[in-house]
């Protein structure tokens, strides 16, 4: 522990430690509901609470039965498959569209830049329920309700703003003379983008793609409106699981989701550090 400044009075010291404890309490408040799920998912009994056996660390009170349940339940397996199909497809579409949009918006000659940016970012600001309702009425006309394609493009549109934001952020540090240098050496604009621009903004593109994937992965409102029974995703299955068949398998799924989210956060942080290194090393 660091030494406190010598001029500290009793009240300073009280404030110092008081603030620490308060911050710790807030952290606990935020984390506890999530952390509590993890041990409960190993419950040997079909309860959502700690059994006396669990509290006394009796190994028999713990089991993997809910995990086994999830992996043997075809509804859960379908939901997992759907979540990944929709999430990956939506992330790919959102990444391509968002990257192209961000690159276009970074061109100094682009007119109406602010207006177009605001328009493209609007899915992030407009309440999801409104987007969902609007899409529902729109989709019924084209028979897109209850189709994979409909759900995928709906989720892609939610992911685009994230990609635009992360790619624009990396492009802000991009030196335009690199682009000019590529042209002067005889490469066509598309080749320069492919060889020079895209590799240099790759960290932004990848973190945008991860954000787009996560957005789709835990989205439930659009799924409720637009998906049929075949397109049920994990959050949708949890939603109905909570109401219909209360079983700790939900906790097992939740634990696995926490693990996935955490690994994504770690990936993002590693990407951020890498791009920082690249920038500081290059200039």
């Amino acid at each position: 522990m660091k030494h406190l400044p010598a001029y500290y009075t009793f009240w300073h010291i009280l404030g110092h430690y008081g603030l620490r404890w308060f911050a710790f309490a807030v952290l606990l408040f935020l984390m506890l509901p999530i952390l509590v799920i993890v041990p409960l998912s190993f419950n040997a009994e079909p309860y959502f609470s700690f059994t006396p056996g669990m509290v006394s660390f009796d190994l028999d009170a713990y089991s993997l039965r809910w995990y086994a349940d999830v992996f043997s339940d075809e509804r859960w397996m379908l939901a997992v498959k759907n979540s990944f199909i929709v999430g990956i497809a939506a992330a790919v579409i959102a990444t391509i569209l968002g990257t192209v949009a961000a690159v276009g918006l970074s061109n100094p000659a682009m007119p109406f830049k602010r207006l177009i940016t605001a328009f493209l970012l609007s899915p992030m600001i407009v309440p999801l329920i409104i987007v969902a309702a609007g899409m529902f009425f729109f989709y019924t006309r084209f028979n897109l309700v209850g189709t994979y394609f409909g759900l995928i493009i709906a989720h892609a549109s939610l992911g685009v703003p994230f990609v635009i934001i992360t790619v624009t952020a990396t492009l802000a540090g991009f030196d335009r003379s690199l682009y000019y240098a590529g042209l002067s050496m005889g490469a066509r604009p598309l080749k320069v983008y492919w060889d020079i621009v895209i590799p240099l903004i790759r960290p932004g593109v990848i973190s945008g793609a991860l954000f787009a994937f996560v957005t789709s992965f835990d989205e439930v409102v659009l799924v409720l409106f637009l998906a049929g029974p075949e397109q049920r995703t994990i959050p949708r299955q949890m939603f109905s699981g909570l109401r219909e068949q209360i079983s700790p398998s939900i906790l097992a799924v939740a634990t696995m989701l926490i693990l996935i989210s955490m690994s994504m956060l770690v990936t993002l942080e590693m990407l951020r550090r890498r791009s920082e290194r690249m920038r500081s090393g290059a200039y």
Binding site: D175, L178, Y180, G182, S184, M185, G186, A187, P199
Partner: peptide, 30 residues
């Protein structure tokens, strides 16, 4: 890209993700 004019920039404009040899090779690969 069709003018065939070489250019040297004040901030060098070297491609940071390519080695020196790759930087020099780029216009030749093109």
């Amino acid at each position: 890209y069709k003018r065939n004019i070489g250019m040297v920039f004040q901030n060098y404009a070297l491609f940071p993700h390519m080695t020196i040899a790759e930087n020099l090779a780029y216009p030749l690969q093109v």
